[in-house]
Design a protein around this nucleic acid. Structure first.
Lengths: 336, 336
DNA sequence: TATGGTAGTGGAAACGTTTGCACAGGAGGT
DNA sequence: ACCTCCTGTGCAAACGTTTCCACTACCATA
């Protein structure tokens, strides 16, 4: 195991360690001759700086922390996450940052993990993916004045960085598409009420109905939770009521895809008997049977811009603190 | 930003920094009284050790590196990955390890990232997910005697850690299931030939056919690549030949699911007109329409045991170097 | 020729830990 | 009463960097 240090390089090049350090950090006043000598020595010894020692004194780690929140077991299984991560890594690696991952099974663990990373001086900034409203971690980070960015929700504080979609508008647009297709009786499968995103999508839906003067039958609102627990019963209730919806907006593509399958089991065809739309446009949505009409929320971009926000802040660059990633209606064959 | 160090704790507790350090690391010969004093002081100051300083001298980082390989754009989008990661994090976090993520767009970048982490003393061990056969990184790590584990392939070297499935057997089992269902004409959609996993699954398939004395019509072998490029044409060729297969084994669930949809578009029902089976049992397989018959390869376990292998090695524990995660046939409704 | 300025380099302290070694004090054996 | 041994603690060096400050040449200017 090679343990070549800056001193070895210095010795080989016939200069002092300070000079080597300066060459590494591209200090302006190093003579070209010295620079070359040192570079050659570094190369010859296959020198790589000890990052621990470096961060200990320079006080930055070129690392961004990411704690996967406890409420996200589904988020995690959900293909959503790996696409977000891909976007994050793309930007981070390009700027020479790495991602440090930890996970938590509950809020205490989440707080612990963050404390360990932040107070342990292990990372320069942190991404908060916890989609719920709870602010104890945010408060703590603000108190320490530690750089962080929120993914998937925003906060009124003007200087808190965040990256999000306009979920209200997205849901509004999606509902209006259904209305424009002639649907008058539209149901919805809602997500966990404690999540901001669920609330936003529900409210955009309601607003669109209201604006079009359409009714919202309470029987047409079911929760994803209910659906998961007892799919058959829930769907039967919905579809065998005297007045059944002709279209259903589903809070998430994954759930939409599974709903389509469950409808098929009971004998309802999509889109012949009922139209289904989802949210997110995950990779699978295009490949489902039938392909799903949905809102593309720019999953990759969400990840990409989250890290962009954070790294820009770390670099002291000026930039708006709230970023809204645009969404886009993708019409496929699950609607008519 | 709190900058409380071991010295602050020592001062408050009225002991020396060494003693504090010993309390932290549970040194046996510290008197209970001192131990309590120090613990109280730590708590009162909300002390968290500076991990950089700690690793600098102790020479371990409690961090495991993970470089996402360049050939894995699909692997990455593939829900497979997030489930593997979930397994990895579960074990790692439980043992107080974190994961350091980097990605690479080509082999040079991959090597660079590994060098940076390994030679930079940033990690204690590394997971290699690159599923192809190329050994330059493995050679380098062996040369340095740096701990690593292979995920998704094994190597003849006796002391190289690896976690894998028995893909030959898995494919053999899956094919035999189809044969037992009465299928005599079975086709296959193969993966990239340079991947070990593709090769193994193809060879298990061939072996089962041979053993049953069944023919393998060359027209019934198509590559996933071809399918992706020109699905319609490829499928038409397959299905409109005089002699068409009654079942198709597909190298990967994602591709199987998309194949089902494409067959539906041309007018072939699954499983009425043709049976389809996949590999992996990703989360979505259960929710597809129809639900997919597949081989569960224990994705979560693959991740979990990979990290287990590595951490055990780091802890100096004795254990077998090659782990094979068992697979399991999951019969659903895409076959008859 | 003396003076000042600048470009290039080295010395040494500092970052916050861990740990080998030394040492004080008390217990136990003769 | 003396020696030995053990328990618990402190001192100081070391880990591999960065960076402030000082210093040496050398050149240009007066």
């Amino acid at each position: 195991m090679s343990a070549v240090t800056i001193k070895d390089v210095a010795q080989l090049a016939g200069v002092s360690p300070s000079t080597v350090s300066r060459v590494i950090s591209n200090h302006p006043k190093i003579s070209p001759a010295t620079r070359k000598k040192v570079r050659d020595a570094m190369h010859q010894l296959d020198y790589h700086p000890n990052i621990m020692a470096k961060s200990l004194v320079s006080k930055n780690t070129n690392t961004i922390g990411l704690v996967l929140p406890y409420s996200s077991d589904n988020l995690f299984i959900n293909p959503f996450f790996s696409e977000v991560l891909r976007g994050m890594l793309a930007y981070a690696n390009n700027k020479n940052y790495d991602l440090l991952l930890s996970s938590a099974r509950n809020q205490r663990e989440e707080l612990e993990a963050i404390n360990r990373m932040v107070l342990g001086k292990r990372i320069d900034g942190v991404v908060l993916m916890s989609p719920s409203r709870d602010d104890v971690i945010v408060k703590k980070l603000m108190e320490y004045d530690f750089p962080f960015v929120l993914l998937g929700r925003s906060l009124e504080y003007p200087d808190v960085l965040s990256v999000n979609n306009d979920n209200i508008k997205a849901s509004f647009d999606l509902t209006n598409y259904l209305i424009a297709q002639g649907h008058q009786k539209i149901g919805i499968v809602t997500g966990k009420p404690e999540l901001v995103v669920s609330e936003d999508r529900l409210s955009g839906f309601q607003r669109a109905l209201r604006q079009a003067g359409l009714p919202l039958n309470p029987d047409w609102i079911v929760s994803a939770e209910m659906l998961e627990k007892n799919a058959y019963h829930t769907i039967s209730m919905l579809m065998n009521a005297g007045d059944r919806p002709t279209a259903i907006l589903v809070i998430d593509d994954v759930i939409a895809i599974s709903l389509i399958r469950e409808l098929a089991e009971i004998g309802f065809g999509v889109p012949e008997d009922i139209s289904i739309v989802g949210f997110n446009n995950i990779y699978m949505s295009e490949m489902s049977n039938p392909p799903l009409t949905t809102i593309d929320v720019g999953i990759y971009q969400l990840g990409y811009q989250t890290i962009q926000q954070l790294i820009r802040k770390l670099a002291g660059e000026d930039h708006p603190s709230k970023v809204t990633v645009p969404h886009r209606l993708v019409v496929r064959e699950s609607t008519k």
